[in-house]
Nucleic acid binder design. Sequence first.
DNA 1: TTATTTTTGTGTAAATTAAACACAAATATG
DNA 2: CATATTTGTGTTTAATTTACACAAAAATAA
Lengths: 228, 228
Amino acid sequence: MAKEYPRIDITVDAVVFGYKPDEGISVLLIKRKKDPFKGTWAIPGGFVEVDESLEHAVSRELKEETGIEVNYLEQLYTFGEPKRDPRKRIVSVAYYALVKPDIYEVHAADDAEGAEWFNIEKLPKLAFDHKYILEMAIFRLRNKISYEPVGFELLDKHFPFSELHKLYETLYGKEIDRRNFKKKFLSLGILKELKEKNSGGKGRPGLLYQFDKDKYFQLKKKGIVFEI
Amino acid sequence: MAKEYPRIDITVDAVVFGYKPDEGISVLLIKRKKDPFKGTWAIPGGFVEVDESLEHAVSRELKEETGIEVNYLEQLYTFGEPKRDPRKRIVSVAYYALVKPDIYEVHAADDAEGAEWFNIEKLPKLAFDHKYILEMAIFRLRNKISYEPVGFELLDKHFPFSELHKLYETLYGKEIDRRNFKKKFLSLGILKELKEKNSGGKGRPGLLYQFDKDKYFQLKKKGIVFEI
DNA sequence: TTATTTTTGTGTAAATTAAACACAAATATG
DNA sequence: CATATTTGTGTTTAATTTACACAAAAATAA
């Protein structure tokens, strides 16, 4: 005799990170339009359709709810406590995503979507268990950049070294000696030094750099691990 | 107008690891009794009930299908490709678990349950996408022991240092200098040296050690990170 | 009994990596 | 044109990792 399993709904949620050197790390939140938690800020997300992959569901929901398209997406964790949604049993597969400055800035300007960026140091009260999810995402991102070159997903294609440096300082929450950091990072051999210089800054203009994805994958294939 | 979401079922799966110094790492598999993949080996698992947590579902299914109770359980990843199960859409939250040698040995002897241990180097053909899940679990375990003291969950409460050493060599798949490894591990300060000696071995009997959980959490709270 | 083999305990020197810091060069600003 | 700011390129010292030597405690073989 077949046992009848009551329905459990499955959703996806996404913690989207953006970065600006002078503002630090921000996340994209939406204001809930319905109960429960009507008017409270929440991580964007929604129900998974029966014939789409989880990643597809995330991308689709992000597009629908915030108008944003992300350039990096990775699964974070699945949250399934029976009472995490007061209405019914919902299991949520959470992802975290990264966007580059151009996307971040466009969507910071127009708030027609009802979506807003919040600095991770100044977060509002969040719906459901989203505070916990967000904290886990931040922790994961902090950790991830130490052994995989995902930081570039938060920077422009071409960037001055100081921006990469500042990103790591921001995420690690501590000062890192500029010269030692540069020495170590360059020794990894995954940065391409460009001819162009960074104009418009205050002091001496520095060279621009670019992440060399091919080189990185070559090294990875050889078993050489990235670590910073 | 409320949109009707077709049903997606949610299951949990568990990759259970066991260890014996002379046999290496093994995983617990069950032989499927029903189609699809009838007669093929698979990772134990099953449907989540509507009022139980995901962890509870894993523990319950493991007990039902293999008779085993694990001492360490952690979420691995959620697999949700639309076609991963030929019958219908199933999203599976995968876990990995560790058992101590006594449990491992008991269940290696009696195979009444239809569950069997397989060395991870000699795996049979697996159902669904379970090969992929298993590979990810192995990768994760290998990685995990490098920054969290989970190795003890595969050893007896008291163990000779050589067993810890051999465990790391097995998981890393390479030789590690015995003396340097011991020096480094002891310097972490999370092992308690016991008075007892390891009897019955071949050469000089070594002292037994025990994982000092309290010390570990003290250090962790201070922000001191375990790394081996 | 005694020599040999195996395994453990302890230590030391060399090599590598990380941390701390000095100073010159390029630009913007007063 | 002096000053402040930021970048580029080191060097020196400290800490960590790696490689390896050798004695001690048991089991086994002669």
